[in-house]
Nucleic acid binder design. Structure first.
Length: 549
RNA sequence: GCCCCCGUCGUCUAGCGGCCCAGGACGCCGCCCUCUCAAGGCGGUAACGGCGGUUCAAAUCCGCUCGGGGGUACCA
């Protein structure tokens, strides 16, 4: 790399005029969009919503959805996280045309013609681009240490340096002869910054926010190459967006202020075929000849918790796999997340993917931060569970019964025929009273295992004179009764009448006797599914319990 | 400190100068149904942050103010 400090006129600063970029409406034609999380931690609802919006626009335009892992920070990025995010995105049903693919054995493969899609595998490209940017004079060396920089910024922030915002510009980074000599002696290695214009302004016409103007004088020159030679996010992100032909950048509002320098860089990369030369040099696939730099931007409002604070561990279910574990359907999440910032033109709130892709538009996305409401999600989820056909519900319930999603292993994996029959028989009993799939565990226990008697329930409904009388009457009525809902209902109602009590007075003791708790699906269906043998046995056991023995 | 964004029921939102003493959804409350829990049906509660303008007329336009958020990293 050349250490020569290039003339200002040869750098991006030459573009110091006032410029405007972006579009007021989504561009026509097939669009390439991407979702590019940094792999540290889990995917949370905010990220997934961004992924969803990108996916929707790509699908609606008949374009391409690219998934890229931005693991340029070796300190924080982990492969486990990358795997987890890949799995989460797949579970959400946001299928991508290009990007990493998680194989059954846990390794990350790849699909698409413009990879690799893990930035850690593209280091050579960033180095090649960096070298060319330096040679072209767009980057300049900064020999200050992080500590020195921080001290410098602190001075400016507190105003003790005599005013001026803490903005790093080439003019503030110039080193004197003495400094250079000293640094050389110390063996310091430079980091390289992108020279942004010192004056003028740029207006980003954002699809959700409209025009937003930034003064270049307020834009700090970002470090593109760390002193160890590695690429930073400001470099890698833009290089890949350009190399992968991203048309529309849709991401969180937290990246809005970084857009000006990204536009500048993207232009530099495309100009004179710099990116193409670098791609060829390192042997990566060439860009499509028609691709230019990104031409549209959309910055989504943040997603906050119900306490209006930024999403964090405190908010519980932030990791998307937590929703999976709790039995939320991915289609519910898609529906509900779409509503977090966007609203259907016709005011509809329940819709499927087809309606969503047909109607969704970034221009209709709101501008204020939205709180994620789990209550509403839960209601929506219950509605969708009710709308499922019974056979499919049974299939979706299995992972919550065999230990895949929860702790309980009420059935084998795979389930036996008998277990499967019970689960299928259970569906009509629980479908209309479930909001989450994981609730099936509690409902299913009495049908698939032994009853555990709830003490309070026993005390209230069994161990009383009325309870004992009810159990005796029920046992007598059920003995020899035909085992179908109609006959059971007739027999038990008659028994209640015989006791001279309302049906409820008989039903609750029986319910507790058979299921162990006061809450269960409707009694007659429950008895049918549990079967004569077990019902009568449990009634007997309950009578013993009720007698205090 | 500096830059940028945002501000309608508890929550998600509709509203883009008169149709709004503000509509829908979730929640909440009440009633109906009912063998428990649900589901379902019906009804109800609840908001334009504040102050100044502009206008015959403002939730809608403008200014200020207050409040919230983001950025200000050799994190992304």
């Amino acid at each position: 790399m050349s250490d020569a400090v290039p003339d200002l006129a040869t750098t991006g600063a030459a573009a110091a005029a006032t410029t405007e970029r972006g579009t007021a409406t989504t561009p026509d034609g097939p669009l390439r969009l991407r979702f590019c999380p940094a792999p540290s931690g889990w995917l949370h609802v905010g990220s997934v919503r961004a992924a969803l919006y990108n996916w929707l626009v790509a699908r609606r335009s008949g374009g391409t959805f690219v998934f890229r892992i931005e693991d340029t920070d070796a300190e924080r990025a982990t492969l486990d996280s990358a795997r987890s995010m890949t799995e989460a995105l797949a579970w959400m049903g946001l299928d991508w045309d290009e990007g990493p693919v998680l194989a059954a054995d846990g390794t990350l493969g790849s699909r698409g013609a413009h990879g690799p899609y893990l930035q850690s595998e593209r280091a050579a490209l960033y180095a090649a681009v960096g070298r060319r940017l330096v040679d072209a004079g767009h980057l300049y060396p900064d020999l200050r240490t992080p500590a020195e920089l921080e001290a410098w910024r602190e001075q400016h922030r507190s105003g003790t340096a005599g005013g001026g915002p803490p903005v790093v510009k080439r003019s503030t980074a110039a080193h004197s002869e003495e400094e250079l000599a000293r640094y050389a002696e110390e063996g310091r290695v430079a980091s390289w910054r992108l020279a942004t214009p010192e004056a003028g302004s740029i207006t980003v016409v954002d699809l959700v926010r409209g025009p937003v103007t930034f003064e270049w004088a307020h834009v700090s020159d970002p470090v593109l190459l760390r002193s160890d030679g590695s690429a930073t996010y400001p470099l890698a992100n833009v290089v890949d967006d350009v190399a992968m032909g991203i048309d529309l950048v849709c991401r969180g509002e937290d990246l809005l202020s970084v857009t000006p320098r990204q536009i500048l860089l993207a232009d530099l990369l495309v100009a004179d075929g710099l990116i193409d030369a670098a791609l060829a040099e390192v042997g990566l696939p060439p860009r499509d000849a028609a691709w230019g730099p990104p031409r549209a931007w959309a910055h989504l409002p943040m997603v906050v918790g119900m306490d209006r604070k930024k999403l964090s561990k405190r908010h519980g279910s932030v990791a998307i796999q937590e929703f999976r574990r709790q039995g939320f359907l991915p289609e519910t999440l898609r529906n509900h997340l779409a509503l977090l910032g966007w609203s259907h033109p016709a005011g509809e709130e329940r819709f499927d993917d087809a309606d969503l892709t047909a109607r969704f538009a970034l221009e209709d996305v709101g501008r204020s931060a939205a709180a994620f409401d789990v209550e509403k999600l839960t209601t929506f989820n219950g509605e969708r569970i009710r709308a499922l056909n019974p056979a499919e519900l049974a299939d979706r319930l299995l992972p919550h019964l065999d230990g895949t999603e929860g702790e309980a292993a009420l059935v084998g994996r795979p389930p036996s025929d008998a277990e499967l029959a019970v689960v299928r028989g259970l569906v009509p009993l629980v479908q209309e009273r479930m909001q989450r799939l994981d609730e099936v565990e509690a409902y299913a226990a009495p049908f698939l295992g032994d009853v555990g008697y709830d003490e309070a329930a026993v005390a209230k409904h069994l161990a009383t004179d009325a309870g004992r009388a009810a159990l005796d009457a029920a046992a007598a009525a059920l003995d020899g009764c035909t085992w179908d809902e109609g006959a059971l209902e007739a027999a038990l109602r008659a028994a209640a009448e015989g006791l001279g009590v309302g049906f409820g007075k008989l039903a609750q003791p029986v319910r507790v006797a058979v299921t162990g708790t006061t809450v269960s699906p409707p009694l007659f269906g429950t008895l049918v599914l549990i079967g004569r043998e077990r019902t009568l046995a449990r009634l007997d056991a309950a009578r013993t319990l009720a007698a205090g023995g």
